[in-house]
């Protein structure tokens, strides 16, 4: 089973873990991503998250299926929150159930890595003196360039 959701509501990791629980599985691994008060040596006031919700849920469902097929998970649940999140709040929770711990750990690690790599969600760090979208530091990593661009109006 795969459960995915983009939400503006507070995330309950406990509720998510109960979604994946089954009598046939001996291991549940949970992950919570938490808003921290600093990044790259700079104080962070809060984060703004934004998602292409329909596509994000589709991509998360694909990732959950991969975690089952490739890593042996039985059930995978992924919830990502959007909107303004304060320091200490949970931005993403993942719960994975599998027959044994190794599959559960591996599937959970795969899931969060894949979400960060390809699910269309963005965060903007807000500082005392402005804000900045993250992710731009991934520019120019050998991806094909979009075509030569005209700039005249």
């Amino acid at each position: 089973m795969v459960y995915v959701k983009i939400t503006e509501e507070v995330i309950s990791a406990n509720a998510l873990a109960s979604r994946v629980r089954s009598d046939a599985d001996g291991a549940i691994v949970s992950f919570e991503g938490v808003v921290r008060d600093n990044n790259a040596g700079k104080g962070v006031s809060y984060l703004e998250y934004e998602a292409y919700a329909e596509m994000a849920e589709r991509e998360m469902a694909v990732i959950g299926s991969e975690a089952m097929r490739v890593y042996g998970a039985t059930n995978v649940a992924i919830v990502h929150r959007v909107g303004r999140l304060e320091i200490g709040e949970v931005s993403i929770a993942i719960a994975v159930a599998a027959p044994h711990r190794r599959e559960a750990f591996a599937a959970c690690a795969y899931t969060i890595d894949a979400v960060k790599e390809r699910v269309p969600v963005w965060k903007k760090e807000q500082y005392a003196d402005g804000g900045q979208w993250l992710g731009s530091q991934a520019e120019d990593k050998g991806k094909p360039a979009l075509p030569a661009l005209r700039t005249e109006c």
């Binding site: 998250y49 292409y52 596509m55 390809r118 699910v119 269309p120 969600v121 979208w133 993250l134 731009s136």
Partner: peptide, 24 residues
Amino acid sequence: RYATLDQSLQDGDELAFIPPVSGG
């Protein structure tokens, strides 16, 4: 769905450019 630059567009398509993602 992820697509490529040379994909042709049809009337009514929904198109989104995806800047570097930073979820999690």
